[in-house]
Design a protein around this nucleic acid. Sequence first.
RNA 1: GCCGACAUGGCGGAACUGGUAUACGCGCACGACUCAAAAUCGUGUGGGGAAACUCAUGUGGGUUCAAGUCCCACUGUCGGCACCA
Length: 800
Amino acid sequence: MSYNHQEIEKKWQAKWAAARTGYVDESVSRDNALYYLIMFPYPSGSGLHVGHVESQAAIDILARMERMRGKNVLCPIGYDAFGLPAENYAIKTGVHPSVTTKAAIENFHNQMQSLGLSFDWSREISTADPEYYKWTQWLFLLFYKNGLAYRKKSPVNWCEGCHTVLANEQVVAGACERCGTVVIQKDLEQWFFNITKYADRLLAGLDSLDWPEKIKSMQRNWIGKSVGAEVTFGVEGRGVRGEGLAVTVFTTRPDTLFGATYLVLAPEHALVDSIVTDEYRSAIEAYRIAASKKSALERTELQKEKSGAFTGSFAINPATGEKIPVWIADYVITTYGTGAIMAVPAHDARDFEFAKKYQLPIKVVVAKDGEELEGFFEEGLAVHSDFLNGLSTKDAKQKMIAWLEEKGIGNAKTTFRIRDWLVSRQRYWGAPIPIIWCEDHGAQAVEEVQLPVELPTDVDFKPTGESPLVDSKTFHDVKCPVCGKDARRESDTMDTFVDSSWYYLRYTDPHNPNAFADKSKVDYWCPVDLYLGGAEHAVMHLLYARFFAYALHDLGYLNFEEPFMKLRNQGLILGPDGDKMSKSKGNVVNPDEVVSEYGADALRMYEMFMGPLEDAKPWDTKGVVGIRRFLDKVERLGERVQGAPDAGVQRTLHKAIKKVTADLEELKFNTAISQLMIVVNEFSAATSINKETFESFLKLLAPLAPHLAEELWEKLGHATSIFAESWPMFDAAMIVDDVVEMGVQVNGKVRGTISIAPTADEAIAKDLAMAEPNVVKWIEGKEIAKIIYVPGKIFNIVVR
RNA sequence: GCCGACAUGGCGGAACUGGUAUACGCGCACGACUCAAAAUCGUGUGGGGAAACUCAUGUGGGUUCAAGUCCCACUGUCGGCACCA
């Protein structure tokens, strides 16, 4: 028999809404406050996904438990509402993105309500709301005025599919992260945020964070710090125009300078024109053209074969004094280091490959650990041996750098892989960049009182490569704030990752018209205590949000640098076939259908029971059935409540209080639930169910299955919510077993079990063990060499 | 290629700091109730074996009284990065 979940769940959802469950009290001391956050969803037209439910259920369970433990918990929800899908839909159908987005948000809201989530609904925000993006724009201007937002012309990633530029982080294996189109390079002037200024601190800050190691290492990789040196090589033979010509390279292995047998410049390197000799000019030009035609994807895909061209010039290796040829090759990247390298083919796989192909000299100068140096060396050996021989790599590097500095031809240098964040987009559905362009005064910040710069509605969405905002007369034509002459508005909008870089701050004071959030409120709630979300945001969102926090900290707006102290990722929920859910595979599970058939409690609890939160796990509707059976069983137990407590059930309950509490704290929902199942199995078997015992159990169940817990609580005669109760405490004395079943081993193999007090001393254990017939059989006639007794765990007899 | 994670019954998974491997759920089998079915309840359920036993946590070694857990090598799966000098 199943209870009527639809009726019960609706009833409680209405009551909670009236009671404003989940709302906070900021008069409570900060020590008792917690900020629990999940990554806000993009309100897609296809509605809530079971993957959303996973993190939402998890954070709701934790928030509900902590509230019962007396904590003041902020657990908000909102919508990352700007972005391409709504805009592309508008291009196709003509329906304005604001209409689509509003409908999608309403749908998400209702779906989340139907799951019984205790978010603070008074703080619901949308990044596409002018009240919100006013502050996104304000923050842009704050960065602009402080030199953190700037414009520059540079080769940028261009996606033909999305008709917009992309940040480096949004290019995955040479293709657009969003649509998969191959990304090409264009030379354009764009807006950037100066995230590289924070590269070192963003890297160092990771150490203090309670984040999955995987995410931290991805961020470390992305930031890509390399410590080494810059070395300047003089170029010979360009006496006519190239007097004093020099090339500076970056290397992480200055200690291998003796082995540098040629130089390579990126084809786009600025010095190529002056270095190339007339004889080689046409060949170099041809190579540069060929290289420029390769897309980022081709350049990585065609990595098998390296190619390059000789410039005709020679540089001097400052360590050996030798003439070494200067080449260009597209395995050297213009945007990293100095765009030029010294090639040490003996100690770098890429240089080795290149040297073999073009028959350039290879000179071994460094021995691997334990290798004999003699015999490896060719020319230059003597210099190297005398100078660096016998030193560790670390010391050799240092000595080399000191030598370079002394000679004035090099210095220690640290390089980062991370590039500045390209934030402008040639798209409509985003926050307009609040800048006015005046012929006389250049880029001018929109005055603060004029914010927000609202998105116009009179636009054609068709992407042309320029922002659709250019077409809007009402938007585009404006007066210069300095001279009042005709000017135009910046027509680009901001990357949606800008919107999501500060939303957690807005939640603390979501309707403030005078600031992005009142400082006292930010101080009260932030940083976020626990942040839950998908691992796909490992680099982009999490790095950008950290950058925002560091920048706002330095500008005096925040008293912390790291926004998210503890981060956990939920794993993907796969389709029943074990594949990633997708419409094309037809293996998508719709949460609404599960709710209507089995109930929100069953859906939430099943998703938590599937396995470890962070693991990917396949959906199994049979599993939902199992949870529903469990809930039905609980409901039936509620009708049998009567009589005195049973000692055995009591003990199980207290063990469960301990385990469920500890497991939930560690986000181990699956084992917490199995422990509750064990309690229920004991209740079922017991002759009577004591009211207090059952009530304690209901409190443990409440965060996981809030509707049913409330219903049964009410049926037991309570007029107030079960969530107003305090979380049960276990009695340590209650959970000690008087007698346990303990294995007795002979030579490490279990040969019997004995019932024994876990506190019993060895003599008692030995008597019991030796009395076991099967044990006796195995030790008969043998010499007892050793006895290992771990009370309550094992009794092992070692015989010879 | 580099970095990281993982590998346990028919399935999802459990196992604290090395201490009775397979908790809990699913599935399956049998039984009770029923004219019958569903639902529910009960019993059983890693493999082999009649049993005693024995084999079993991806593979092969090692440490230990004792290894899913620790060490070494390998294989496979997944995720990330990819000419970063």
